[in-house]
């Protein structure tokens, strides 16, 4: 089984990549692949309780929550980035595991392919 980490680093409001990162990760389940999603840098704002791209007419991010629940896709968010972007109220529905930068390296190195979107 291949381990593949999909990484979003751009903010979910202003660019489509957070949505595309989740969509691509969910698309892997038809094959013998273990996908995971890592949110780093500005992308960590995606799990903020009040984050709402739809407020400016963009595609919502929250639609991914039901698929995270359905597939049990591991979602990681970097602690240092959450602090940097003052993300305090986290949407529990995203089921994100908060990890340190040091743990990011372990996860990255455990993968066959790491795909930054």
């Amino acid at each position: 089984m291949k381990k593949v980490l999909f990484v979003a680093y751009q903010a979910p409001v202003g660019a489509i990549w957070v949505n595309e990162t989740f969509r691509t990760a969910f698309g892997m389940y038809g094959e013998d692949i273990e996908p995971a999603v890592l949110l780093m840098d500005e992308a960590v704002t995606a799990i903020a309780e009040r984050n709402a791209p739809e407020r400016v007419g963009l595609l919502p991010v929250k639609i991914v929550k039901k698929y995270i629940e359905k597939y049990g896709t591991p979602v990681y968010a970097v602690k240092e980035d959450l602090e940097k972007f003052h993300v305090k109220d986290i949407d529990a529905g995203c089921k994100a595991q908060i990890i340190s930068e040091a743990d990011v390296k372990k996860i990255v190195r455990d993968c066959d392919f790491v795909i930054f979107m």
Partner: peptide, 12 residues
């Protein structure tokens, strides 16, 4: 580019 720096730091 912040992310490229971080990618390089993953190297061993």
């Amino acid at each position: 580019h912040e992310i490229e720096k971080r990618k390089m730091e993953f190297a061993e």
